[in-house]
């Protein structure tokens, strides 16, 4: 059977997440940093729910009231020019 890709941007598979978790006995946050799942171009908009679910399942950490991995701005892809504050103020 073919692999199941969970994070499309970074092409991280379910199998890869499971193996990495087993090998390093990592927390949800560490697993994201190790595999880059959820850290691609779309900022996790596509895979966030799936990645969180896999992480909860593998690490046994409950879906707490906190957002699983904190959201940080910018929440949309942005060029460096725009980020540099060259956008004009109203």
């Amino acid at each position: 059977m073919k692999d199941t890709i969970v994070c499309r941007c970074e092409e991280v598979t379910l199998q890869e997440l499971e193996e990495t978790a087993r090998k390093y006995n990592s927390s949800a946050r560490e697993l994201k940093l190790l595999t880059r799942a959820g850290m691609g171009f779309c900022g996790g908009r596509t895979c966030r729910q799936a990645v969180d679910k896999v992480l909860t399942d593998i690490t046994g950490e409950d879906p707490t009231n906190e957002l699983p991995l904190k959201v940080a701005p910018p929440v949309r892809p942005l060029s460096l020019t725009d980020l540099g504050g060259l956008a004009k103020d109203e």
Partner: peptide, 12 residues
């Protein structure tokens, strides 16, 4: 709202 994915092999 946004849509949750349901990853299955070949969904890309």
């Amino acid at each position: 709202a946004a849509e949750s994915p349901a990853p299955i092999p070949g969904w890309t």
